[in-house]
Design a protein around this nucleic acid. Structure first.
Length: 545
RNA sequence: GCCCUCGUAGUCCAAUGGAUAAGACAACCGCCUCCUAAGCGGUGGAUCCAGGUUCGACUCCUGGCGGGGGCACCA
């Protein structure tokens, strides 16, 4: 944590660091109180320490305050004990000046790398079936998984992003059969694929009318995967690895066969009605599950177990899977299988994304891939653009259902708060350009020397406090797998900047020391907004609008 | 029926057990001689219901009610 803020966090039992290291009572916080007259920062430490100390909370708060006063000296203007025993701290201008200097000195390192224990993490997301185009649900999954990966990486973890391609099983054969039928001018099989994209796909594949369905399926998968990768890249989502399910079935023995062997050795499988079952119900699942069908074919679940085992063997300390809500019934069996193979269930995180519902004329519409009725990722981006689409999808918590009315989204995209944040960034760029690069460099150097620039405007203090909260916001958002918090923070930061802009003249401010100080504050605000937009949310930060 | 998840203003949505529940859109009233009006200021408006735990509950527990999802030898 930042030095200036650490002055406070270092207080007995106060702050995040205090909670983590001191072993003090849980729930101690150092936070920005709801009202300015409650001080700049506030802690409930006394409320929580009081029972252990056998003293009234207000008395404990008084003692804490006195101790802090001694430690911080001129940085702490005064403190107050409030309500049931809150300790409210009022910080001096000196403290604020030092804090901004530290933000600027930290540069790219400001607020980042705070993970207490960095891990190698594999984030698997999207993993859309290659049998059709990606719809808005995949877009949400992509935006979320991508933002989460960015967040975890900035928080200090080593992150790998992976797309799992389900290129095996009956669905691929069905796709091949559908293409073969269309190529021959025959009707598509009853349970085949008949979306708008299938016919062009059939036309694209040379000699489709004379090739075998299995082979057509493979060719079609290659085309669809390539198409998905491109659509995702255009959405600013890139993957480090593309893992094919078919690989898990190849070789002798295959990865799937090996994992089935492992389960067998552990005595957690049995045969019944010609099929091989997993005793997953003994590990928290609702019922036992089939691994090998009576036909001799492996189930999807069997390859998925092999896939998760494979991830573990690749040395990831943590696996995060981002799944659609329609997969949540699958969670219990996956956790069970993971544990049955000796994995620590804590290290397998299965995140369920709630669905995106399409709304047309106020009514919910069903998205059906086989019927070809859905809004694709490309449609969404085409209608409202990458920035607005990403913000729209990322500004909501992953566990709330989103209703998407594309007509409304198109109309309202100009009202998207993303533009407000971008506008603040562009406005700063314009101000700094007006000041000139040399003047900005001089101002930054001056702040580092700690020049006295007089009293602070409340808007300046508020903006600095918001900037100082950045590291905590990253930590909180990363630990809770909640990138939407970054969107909230970015908006609040932009609002605080805009209030500062309204209240405080920057370029041309008198005396020069004030101008320097405010230019430096603008630089810190601009960097942090860009950090949020570009590096965390994958949204552009334009220099002009 | 069972399991999971969500219920906060007209709408969308935020809030590690903390003080008077944040913000956006929509509505209404004002503001461009001034570093970008994609902006600023102001007004009204919310925790599904009932119990419980706690000094303190939107938050945790129990029971309802409502929305969504899931309960295959499909993937």
């Amino acid at each position: 944590m930042l030095g200036a803020a650490a002055d406070l966090a270092g207080a007995p039992g106060a702050g995040r660091a205090g909670r983590a290291r001191s072993g003090g009572p849980a729930g101690v916080t150092l936070e920005r109180p709801p009202r300015p007259d409650f001080g700049d920062y506030s802690t409930n430490a006394a409320l929580l320490l009081a029972p252990a100390l056998g003293a009234p909370p207000r008395e404990v708060a008084q003692r804490l305050g006195a101790e802090l006063q001694g430690r911080l000296g001129g940085k702490l203007e005064r403190f107050e004990v409030a309500g049931p025993g809150f300790l409210n701290l009022f910080l001096s201008t000196e403290w604020y000046r030092g804090a901004l200097a530290e933000v600027l000195a930290a540069g790219e390192g400001f607020g980042v790398g705070g993970a207490a224990r960095p891990e190698r993490i594999l984030v698997e997301f999207v993993s859309a079936n290659p049998t059709g185009p990606m719809h808005v649900g995949h877009a949400r999954n992509a935006a979320y998984g991508d933002a989460l990966a960015r967040l975890l990486a900035i928080h200090g973890h080593e992150v790998t992003r992976e797309f799992y391609v389900n290129d095996a099983g009956s669905q691929i054969r069905k796709l091949g059969e559908s293409i073969a039928a269309l190529a021959k001018g025959e009707p598509v099989p009853e349970d085949g694929y008949r979306g708008d994209y299938v016919e062009p796909l059939a036309a694209e594949i040379e000699g489709a009318a004379t090739r075998e369905p299995d082979e057509l399926g493979r060719v079609a998968v290659a085309i669809m995967v390539d198409r998905a990768a491109r659509a995702l890249a255009a959405f600013r989502v890139d993957f480090d690895e593309w893992k094919y399910e078919s690989e898990l079935h190849s070789g002798a023995p295959s990865a799937v066969e090996r994992v089935l062997g492992l389960l067998d050795e552990r005595g957690v499988t049995y045969r019944s009605e010609e099929a091989v079952w997993l005793r997953s119900s003994e590990f928290g699942d609702d019922k036992d599950r089939v691994l090998v069908r009576s036909s001799g074919e492996h189930t999807y679940f069997a390859s998925d177990i092999a896939y998760h085992q494979d991830k573990r063997e690749r040395g990831y300390q943590r696996q995060i899977d981002v799944w659609g809500a329609d997969h949540h019934g699958y969670l219990g069996r996956m956790k069970a299988a993971y544990a049955m193979l000796g994995g620590d269930p804590e290290q397998l995180e299965l995140i369920i994304m709630q669905l995106v519902h399409l709304v047309r004329r106020g009514e919910r519409a069903q998205m059906s891939k086989r019927a070809g009725e859905f809004v694709t990722l490309e449609d969404l981006v085409g209608e409202i653009g990458v920035d607005a689409a990403r913000w729209f999808l990322l500004s909501r918590s992953h566990d709330t259902t989103i209703d998407l009315d594309l007509d409304l989204a198109r109309e309202e995209s100009s009202e998207n708060p993303v533009y407000y944040v971008q506008y603040a960034h562009a406005r700063i760029a314009s101000m700094l350009a007006k000041a000139g690069a040399e003047r900005v460099a001089a101002a930054l150097a001056e702040v580092g020397r700690g020049q006295d620039a007089g009293a602070l405007h409340p808007s300046e203090a508020a903006l600095i406090k918001r900037l100082l909260a950045f590291g905590g916001e990253i930590a909180e958002a990363a630990e809770r797998r909640a990138p939407h918090r970054i969107a909230s923070y970015a908006l609040e930061l932009a609002q605080d900047f805009t209030a500062f802009y309204r209240d405080c003249r920057v370029v041309g401010a008198e005396p020069e020391a004030v101008e320097s100080w405010r230019i430096a504050l603008c630089v810190a605000a601009q960097r942090t907004i860009a950090r949020c937009l570009v590096d965390l949310l994958g949204v552009t930060a334009p220099a002009e609008m």
